[in-house]
Nucleic acid binder design. Structure first.
Lengths: 119, 119
DNA sequence: CATATTCGTTAGTCACAACTTACGGTTAGT
DNA sequence: ACTAACCGTAAGTTGTGACTAACGAATATG
């Protein structure tokens, strides 16, 4: 079983493909079957199946069997995991940027509004 | 000029490469020169230059020339743009998930001792 | 049981991206 | 002006991933 739970780095690689991003976008409204997805995409149905496997293996999608069809849906936990992972990539940089922004704002406020002493 | 401003889809493709993620991770503490980055990476210096070009073209990094060196740093605006783009990919799905969670909670509270295997 | 539907998997092809090597361009120092 | 340091670019090779076509498994239906 290659299925693993919520791998943020694999999720990033998965979302680097335009077709897979389109699949995820089509799943915004809710679960869809493979045939439905393939009908709205410019690639063959097996290709869609392969993309769905990639998206499922990294935890971004979940599968629900219903008769002969399989409905794929976005896994919100993976979404949260990806956002958290991205934040760890540049958190320090964002803090430094925010600090710099505050410093710039303080400089501007002291220059433009002389009569308003900031705290 | 291949340089463009804050392309979220290109940023996603850029971050799909492990070496580029490592570069971004090394830039968390602040700006670094090409030689510094190459010293901490398992690839050659020209390869680092090529990766830095990709990261700069999608708007994720900024360059500052200082003597013979070029210092690369994370561009916080691109970070914010990427997060916003990701949210547009699955915002509806997240809302549907929250609604479904509420529906499930209501169902559980109404029929706690029911055992339905489904279809 | 036979058939159709739906989907996953495999094999094989092809394009692209990551890498190294070699080279050229800038800037600082002597 | 000459040299060294630092970096970007071009050319060429190689591995990886996306795709189609063909096949097989599972389920519903007559």
């Amino acid at each position: 079983m290659t299925n693993e739970y919520a791998n943020p780095e694999a999720a990033l690689s998965a979302l680097s493909d335009p077709t897979r991003r389109s699949i995820v976008s089509h799943l915004r409204g809710g679960a869809r079957s493979v045939g439905e997805l393939a009908g709205h995409l410019p690639v063959s149905r097996p290709a869609v199946s392969q993309h769905l496997k990639v998206l499922s293996d990294c935890g971004l999608l979940t599968v629900t069997r219903h008769g002969t069809r399989r409905y794929y849906a976005i896994a919100p936990e993976a979404v949260a995991g990806l956002r958290a992972y991205l934040d760890t990539l540049w958190d320090d940089a964002l803090e430094a940027y925010a600090a710099e922004a505050r410093r710039q704002a303080r400089l501007i406020s002291t220059k433009e509004t002389e009569d308003d002493p900031g705290n």
